[in-house]
Structures are given as C-alpha cells and as structure tokens.
C-alpha cells in the first residue's frame, strides 16, 4: 500500500502537480476477485471516470471492468501480459499494450538511455532465441536432435 501511494505521489510531483495528490485516492479495496470488480465498477459509474488505465495481470475481471468503462464513456488504455485477456482489452479499450509492450511503456515515455538500452537488449535476446528456435526446427526436420536435446523442456 505505501509503495503504491509513493508511486502515485512521485508521479504527481514529477509533473509539477503535488497539490493534486491525495493519498486517500490510493486505497485497498478487497482481495476477492468479483467483489473487487463490483467495487471498481461502482466507483466508475458513481464518479463518471474520464480515463481508465488497466495495467498488469488480469483474469476474468478484465472484460467486466472495461465494458463498464466503455458504458460510462471513459477513454481506456490497457496493458497486460495475460494472453487470454488481450482480445478483450483490444475490443473494449482505445489503446492496448500487448504483452511485452507493457514493460516497454516506461522507456517509450521517458526516453531514458538506460531503459532504451534495456529494450534493445530484449530485442537482441529475442533475435537470439528466434534464431535458436529456427535452427532447432531445421535440424530436427533432418533428424539431427543434438540442439533439441541440449535445451530440454524441463
């Protein structure tokens, strides 16, 4: 809780609006999935949200919240690494960060060299992994299984 409050406070300070920060706006709701949905949806409808950000891991609650956001006319931006929820977010939100884009968002927004370097390293690793996958597929096609056996599943 204090970490979440600190992150929001830091965001308000960094854009030069410390006066708009109210720590009571960052609060615990519940750890029960659908009770949480009921709470969030109630807040959305009562307060007539203008913008919703859905960032992180989501399960069945995703669509329930985004459809309600849609119904109140909010602009919605989502980002998730939960593959099963991505279609729902794409359908109901104006912008969706798909999978790894969620992790790249901070680098994209503040353009810090350290974070951009991190993204570049991820791309190189992706290239490396894809090359190994392709090489493994080609070798396995010719029944050369050395590389496949070198990288066991578990």
């Amino acid at each position: 809780m204090p970490i979440a409050q600190e992150i929001v406070r830091e965001a308000h300070y960094s854009v030069g609006r410390p006066d708009t920060y109210d720590r009571n706006n960052v609060f615990y709701l519940t750890n029960v999935q659908f009770a949480y949905v009921a709470g969030v949806n109630g807040i959305m409808i009562r307060e007539r949200m203008a913008t919703n950000f859905f960032m992180g891991f989501f399960a069945a609650e995703a669509l329930l919240m985004t459809e309600t956001g849609n119904a109140v006319g909010a602009v919605q931006i989502a980002g998730t690494d939960a593959v099963t929820q991505i279609p729902f977010f794409i359908t109901t939100c104006q912008y969706t960060l798909i999978g790894e884009e969620l992790y790249a968002a901070s680098a994209y927004l503040n353009r810090e060299p350290m974070l951009l370097g991190n993204l570049k390293a991820q791309d190189y690793f992706k290239f490396l992994i894809t090359s190994i996958v392709l090489l493994g597929a080609i070798l396995a096609t010719f029944e050369i299984t050395g590389l496949t056996l070198l990288l066991p599943e578990k």
Binding site: D81, V83, G99, E100, Y103, K126, I129
Partner: peptide, 9 residues
C-alpha cells in the same frame, strides 16, 4: 507474445 513477456519480465 509469451516470448516477449518472458524477456520483458
């Protein structure tokens, strides 16, 4: 997507 998510995390 899972590959990108793994590397990102």
């Amino acid at each position: 997507i899972a590959l990108g998510v793994g590397l990102g995390s």
